[in-house]
Design a protein around this nucleic acid. Structure first.
Lengths: 204, 204
DNA sequence: TTCCGCATGTAATCTGTTACATGATTAC
DNA sequence: GTAATCATGTAACAGATTACATGCGGAA
């Protein structure tokens, strides 16, 4: 998903300025969607204009100098071709999961528990925002937009359910069995202990 | 989440070569986690070695020249400090959602439906893989790894549920109401029609 | 009159990918 | 013997971020 197509998509909603697009993403990117910096937005807008996909609307003397960009016929065409092209499969890239799955038994679970508690709070906040969003009275959300928001809600609720379950399991030290056909858990701890031991010796 | 820390995390499981790490991610990155290219792995391994976080194990004359990397005491320390640091909140960056929420009523829903059907298939495949993974008899998965896999499963199942629901809604043309306080849906379609109309005129 | 928010823009930098080069070993 | 896989590495490139520069308008 290129920045260019994202910009076309945003401009399809209504004509906007570069600054405007950035603030829009800033707002919703409270965890939703993702950010774009001025350093990529302005040059790309310029490029899109050069390529004939967007043009600047007359700013009707609003005092401030600003460039309101709008799609050209070619811009609409390009945008809709992009819409029709099959979307790529999203990657799950979650630092919490990476940390959790490489956590080891010689490390205090309390730190992991506080990661989970923090995640719980953040997800609750985001869920609250997402639930209010289509009811706030001023944001434009299409019918299909409502469907995607429904997905985000379901996902966040699932995440909260999982966090709750995991916290109970961790606090009761009731972890499920792993799959460890070659006794790697013990090897790992042994490798680590030896390394740490060597370090202590050297430090003395 | 830097590549460096990801490499330390992978090496904490067991000593590996650069090639090895790449294949590992290739395999699981059937959608899970994410990829790394040789162009970033090898230079980073070199850097980590220079920084004293990893070192090369004797390769015990396995014939092939290869570098088996292992964590140093400093490597373990760095890795565990990273584990303890609060993970950043993941961003939802899903091209399907972006396309769906900017889809408009003058575009055929059939294309959107085929995007959803394709996603359904891909997610089913991934779910199947994730369910088999901890039972395949050879992969090492720690107890906490099982918990994270449980999360992925729940998430994928939620996604499938949402896709089913959405397909029914789309096929019955039974979409929920959007939020459109300023009649933007009509404005959008009008802007587009005018642009497309102009193009047709010019083309004649 | 000073500060903050609106608004645009660029240069330096960072990070990562692609594509290629190289060569050994194993499977057919 | 030759194709595929294992294995390491780099140079050129692409993409995006950070940090800075600039300036207007309105509010305190």
């Amino acid at each position: 998903m290129s920045v260019e197509h994202t910009l076309l998509a945003v401009l399809s909603i209504w004509p906007s300025t570069g600054y405007n697009i950035k603030s829009e993403f800033e707002h919703k990117a409270a965890g939703l969607y993702w950010g774009m910096s001025y350093g990529s937005i302005y040059p790309k807008l310029k490029k899109l204009e050069e390529d004939g996909f967007i043009y600047t609307l007359e700013q009707e003397e609003e005092g401030r100098k600003k460039k309101l960009y709008e799609l050209t016929p070619e811009g609409w065409e390009e945008f809709e071709n992009w819409l029709k092209a099959p979307p790529s499969y999203p990657v799950i890239k979650d630092e919490l999961l990476m940390k959790m799955s490489t956590w080891h038994e010689d490390m205090d679970y309390d730190d992991l528990i506080s990661h989970l508690l923090k995640r719980k709070e953040q997800t609750e906040d985001l869920l609250e925002f997402v639930k209010e969003w289509p009811k706030n009275g001023y944001s434009y959300i299409s019918k299909l937009g409502i469907l995607t928001i429904r997905f985000i809600e379901m996902r966040l609720e699932t995440e909260l359910r999982w966090i709750e379950e995991s916290l109970v399991i961790l606090k009761n030290d009731d972890l499920p069995d792993g799959q460890d056909p070659y006794g790697n858990t013990e090897k790992l701890l042994e490798r680590r202990r030896r390394a740490i031991g060597e370090k202590k010796e050297n430090d003395q």
